[in-house]
Design a protein around this nucleic acid. Structure first.
Lengths: 186, 186
DNA sequence: ACGGACATGTAACACGTTACATGATTAA
DNA sequence: TTAATCATGTAACGTGTTACATGTCCGT
């Protein structure tokens, strides 16, 4: 399958009509989905165009005053079928990329103070995101689903586990980097 | 910084000399690092070439009988400095991509039996990976570090959290998909 | 005899990001 | 007046994957 922008658009449209702009926004606004999906305008608009050519989606153009026309896309029958089909393939492995973890891998090369600061920052970040996921989050009822609720819970479980692990084990890293005082790092 | 193949090569070489082939292998073999780093030969070899041109690494060519020459790369002084420098920037956000989670987001469109099967499979997969991380794993002592140990623990904590969450919450998804019996899915 | 590990490298291709272009309205 | 939100789109660019090319040795 490959979780490309095409498929993401198809998936989000299966929950109801939307414009390209709204699809992009849903990564930021809508609950948890931004934590494991993202796409830029430069990817979404062309994808929507191709999907239209292929007949998997269609659009209604709403004219507006100063702004460009609003193009509201919806899935066609064949689009819905194609998306359902794409859900049948067995999913590939998860892909996790973390600059933060990469840095920690080389914690012994990082000055002690800086390392502590990095960890504190990231921990704060995780706590913030956990908080967002746990808060009720005013959601358009029509757009929630068991899947979305599950994903939100998964995200929360992930952040909770990471916070706990880092809090309990950061001393292992900090002990290593302590040997190189900040002023002697270079 | 951006955690590109260049930087990954620099980082791994900071632990000792290696060939391109060995760098690639270390993603598969070496403890946890494959869970959040990866690169293909097609990316590694050119990266090593460019790094050599730039004087950040140098190589000793070991001639071999039938096989191509073994090119053993090591960091130069300026390479080590450049890498240390790159560790100074503040790390960007984690990036997590999961086809599996994407499918679950649309669990209500998946036939019940298939969904159960998907979840069982993934759970088995996670348990397997957790087991690998928990097992002692014969490691070249010179290549272990506090960072690597920390990362292994982090990976284990991650898989444990995911397994627990999925086991406790899969019923939420399965209840939804139940409404669509497999034979009526199309 | 056959596949896998060892070993390096190139070229075509896919995919996505960033920056740019355009422009009205509204809140600070 | 300055920034943000709404709204779409193109083009250059970077980065990485996949497939191909080549060839030996070793275990089963």
């Amino acid at each position: 399958m490959a979780i490309d922008v095409r498929t993401i658009c198809l998936g989000l449209l299966s929950r109801g009509p939307a414009t390209g702009y709204e699809i992009k926004k849903s990564f930021e606004d809508e609950g948890a989905i931004g934590y494991f999906l993202e796409a830029s305008f430069g990817a979404i608009y062309p994808a929507l165009g191709r999907l239209t050519e292929e007949g998997l989606v269609d659009l209604k153009v709403e004219q507006q005053d100063g702004k460009p026309d609003r193009k509201v896309y919806s899935l066609t029958e064949s689009g819905r079928a194609a998306f359902k089909d794409s859900l049948r393939v067995s999913p590939g492995p998860d892909r996790f990329r973390s600059e933060f973890l990469f840095l920690l891998l080389f914690a012994d090369l990082i000055p002690h103070d800086h390392l502590r600061h990095l960890i504190d920052e990231r921990l704060e970040d995780y706590r913030q995101k956990l908080h967002e996921l746990e808060s009720e989050c005013v959601q358009i009822p029509a757009k929630t689903s068991a899947g979305l609720e599950f994903i939100r819970g998964q995200g929360a479980a992930y952040f909770r586990a990471m916070i706990e692990y880092i809090e309990n084990n950061r001393h292992l890293l900090e002990a290593q980097s302590e040997r190189i005082p900040a002023h002697a790092a270079e």
